[in-house]
Amino acid sequence: MDDMTTKDVQEPYTKHLLHYFDGTSRYVLIKDEEVPFPEGKLIVSRTDLQGIITHCNQAFIEMSGYTEEELIGQPHYILRHPDMPKVAFKDAWDTVGSGVKWHGYVKNLRKDGRYYWVYATIILNIRDGKPVSCTSVRRKPSRTQVDACTALYAKLRQAEEE
């Protein structure tokens, strides 16, 4: 995946190097500006079992800032924000991989460097008794929970860096 550049992200921003679980890494440019989740909408996507996006709805496209062509075929971690602790994603994939529904609050990174919070649910899609893909649905989170997670994730990130 390509590094984020000033072509898409306007100053001011901070630059971070993210390392992903598959051994790859990229530079992301972060702006301290939230985009509110729209009322009444759901962000829906589907990935294969390797986490590659195979389907996304219009709300996903609008909130991520990417086009559908830019999203399909990319790993879902294209949205990963450096403020998210790695342990949150490990918990999500371990839970879903064992066939259990996962819920959690996630801070996502947009193409333009801004961010948006979601309440995410991920399930494993079973067909003929076999896991074939994952569906993820994100909805508007409560501000109380977002504030609590902001503090929690900062502590978890600090622990991961020590």
């Binding site: 529904k101 819920h103 899609n125 067909r127 569906t135 649905v137």
Partner: peptide
């Protein structure tokens, strides 16, 4: 329809 059912499943806690 399976896709819609999966989606509904994510919405039911």
């Amino acid at each position: 329809t399976e896709f819609m059912i999966d989606l509904m499943d994510t919405l039911v806690n």
